[in-house]
Design a protein around this nucleic acid. Structure first.
Lengths: 128, 128
DNA sequence: AACTTTTTACGAAATTCTTCGTAGATAATT
DNA sequence: AATTATCTACGAAGAATTTCGTAAAAAGTT
């Protein structure tokens, strides 16, 4: 079990989000997607993805000329990792404090609030 | 209005947490507190706090021989900043998604869940 | 086949963060 | 007063991250 994958950096997270969204991709595809919202050189994207492979955040298929990269970490696990880290480092480990900041900040819609209530119901229900 | 204070690094956040907790402190006091849970040289702590002053995360009183450092950013604002950043970078801006990860992860107590419900009530009540 | 384009590999510069050693100044102790 | 301890300032090394240029290999085009 490889539980200790490194925390992705900002740049790595951007790549992961794209691959989670559009599925396994080539460097070109990721770079195109990145280029929609920021300026970035092709070889920069390539380098980041190569490093991510070394770290185990991505795997790649090198059969063809153009390598295809796959996410090696799930979106859910990664979000878990990041939110846990933030909770510990900035909120003293309190989920409540973090949740309140997240909700208090943003103007949540009535619908969102309702969904969270239902989620809380589930949490209590599924609990022993 | 200085809205663009830099995001504190891991090390800087540790210093801020200590100063938020125990109030304005000297380098020695911060270093002692840090030493309780990690090994760190005195000049390392000094350097970090000096850099934080330059960045505007701390202010300092240099009247005496021993300088006294004060937090220049509030805990609340900083938590806001960090949670917003995480929400944008890892949760596509969705507070809901983040909240669910935070709650689903940790085994929240019934009391915590109740508190969050009450918080949601307030949110809706205070809203127009 | 010669040329152009695309892609990977390699290396290195620029930046940021962390760490700490050394020197000098200031204060406290003997 | 001399010694010792404490503190700040300075600089620099090491690691991590981001960036990109150049070269070489592979594929496609004329």
């Amino acid at each position: 079990m490889n539980k200790k994958l490194p925390k992705p950096t900002e740049g790595e997270l951007e790549v992961l989000r794209i691959i989670w969204q559009q599925g396994s991709s080539t460097v070109r595809q990721v770079n195109d997607a990145l280029s929609l919202f920021k300026e970035v050189g092709y070889t920069t994207t390539l380098k980041i993805m190569q490093i991510m492979s070394e770290k185990g955040l991505l795997t790649r298929d090198t059969t063809g000329k153009t390598h295809v990269y796959h996410a090696a970490v799930s979106q859910e696990k990664t979000q878990q990792q990041l939110v846990t880290k933030l909770m510990d480092s900035a909120f003293g480990g309190s989920a409540m404090a973090l949740v309140m900041q997240a909700l208090g900040n943003k103007k949540s819609t009535a619908k969102e609030i309702k969904e969270i209530r239902e989620f809380l119901d589930q949490l209590e229900g599924g609990k022993k």
